[in-house]
Write a protein that binds this DNA or RNA. Structure first.
Lengths: 160, 160
DNA sequence: CGTTGATAGATGCAAACGCATATAATTGCC
DNA sequence: GGCAATTATATGCGTTTGCATCTATCAACG
């Protein structure tokens, strides 16, 4: 038994990186928040919105991916907005003839929301231009592998 | 020259994954947005905020990382909020004795914002509990390597 | 059936937000 | 030094938001 035998405990990955697991998590979250803010700001100032707010577009986009009409509650799961705020946002889009509310024969409480033809057309138009801006912003700094990795990590985070 | 020579163009990584680079970027962004929304909602409903909104905490946190007092404009770079909204948010926090405004001798336009003792104490208290919630949420679904990767990808996205 | 509790969505209201613009101070250029 | 352009922040105002609460409907159980 030599005095040179290393007696330090085996390092974890976090130790090897010089940070605790908690710090690692918080640094990752802070970086993600910053990236979110930077990109949201950049996308918001693109001239592609045709009078929609990003939240309004978010609702149109969510509906565009759905085959069947959605309830307010369902939409709420995809949009970071309180139920009353979402309810009124839908009101406004209905007033603008971009959405329709129709009754559910099986549940009189529910409001089924769906895109009008105009709503779908507007979503497509905005989506095309916005999607191009998203691609532009992300592909200039990330490789294909990194984009795929970001998607994978994000899906893990979003899972319950 | 044989007829068996493959004449298809070399596949890119995106082709190999079966998606175009644009689609890849948009899928990554959508997943990131979803993760952001899911986690924000979860963090917001944690009972750690002591009467602060998350945006207000964001300002206290940003200031807590700075040695010197910051201008409104500097804070604005870190917070996803319009300049007037930030100006009034600071007003409210000053009214609550969590921040102080002091004049800049070299530039009478500028408002130097800094934490009061109470503001710093509140940030620490909230930060401790919130940081724990962040760590909890992220470490249960991501490994250390993945956390570090997320941080790296996010920093790349936020650059420029 | 009828009452109780849960669920979907709407509404009252005060607080907070964004846009446009005002105010005030600085910089640059003649 | 004086005037235009720019920068930093504040304010007016209409819109949107969140919280609390309300209404209406459904589900479940005696």
């Amino acid at each position: 038994m030599t005095a040179a035998t290393p007696l330090v405990p085996p390092t974890t990955t976090a130790d090897a990186l010089g940070r605790s697991r908690t710090v690692l998590a918080n640094e990752a979250w802070e970086a993600a928040l910053t990236a979110h803010a930077v990109l949201m700001r950049r996308f918001a100032e693109e001239d592609v919105w045709h009078g929609l707010s990003m939240r309004e577009y978010d609702v149109l986009y969510t509906l565009s991916k759905c085959e069947r009409p959605q309830r307010i509650g369902e939409l709420g799961r995809h949009v970071l907005l309180s139920q009353p705020a979402l309810s009124r946002l839908v009101d406004r889009l209905v007033d603008r003839r971009l959405l329709t509310r129709c009754a559910d024969p099986a549940d009189a409480r529910a409001a089924h929301i769906s895109l009008t033809t105009a709503g779908r057309a507007l979503q497509r138009e905005v989506g095309l231009a916005h999607g191009a801006a998203v691609a532009q912003a992300m592909t200039t700094v990330l490789t294909d592998e990194e984009l795929d990795l970001l998607r994978t990590l994000s899906l893990k985070l979003a899972q319950e």
